[in-house]
């Protein structure tokens, strides 16, 4: 049973606007929308890190902050979230668009 997204607020680019509405079930639906059928423990390691970092700073972590923070390599990050990990990870983690450049 997939989570219902009707009550969730998104901006015009598809990012959730209220991170407190986020749940793991919602993340799974958002991941499917981004073309990821299943989320593995490696995916969750990244998403959990982004949730923590994002809620602490109010901003989505950049890709470099994700790789240094999780110890997951750049290659693996791009393999786990193919075709644009920056936006994909932020969307699935219910955070805003990453603002940093690195």
């Amino acid at each position: 049973m997939l989570a219902d997204l009707t009550a969730i607020a998104f901006n015009e680019e598809g990012f959730m606007t209220d991170p407190s509405q986020w749940t793991k079930e919602i993340a799974e639906v958002l991941a499917k929308q981004e073309g990821l059928e299943t989320l593995t423990p490696e995916h969750w390691k990244i998403i959990d890190f982004c949730r923590q970092a994002g809620l602490a700073s109010g901003k989505s972590p950049t890709l470099r902050q994700i790789t240094t923070g999780t110890g997951i390599s750049t290659k693996d990050l791009f393999a786990l979230f193919p075709k644009g990990p920056a936006k994909k990870v932020a969307k699935i983690a219910g955070l805003g668009k990453p603002e940093g450049c690195v």
Binding site: G84, P85, C101
Partner: peptide
């Protein structure tokens, strides 16, 4: 480097 990295992050 900066623009290329941003592009990769956006799936380009």
């Amino acid at each position: 480097l900066i623009m290329g990295w941003a592009a990769l992050g956006n799936g380009i």
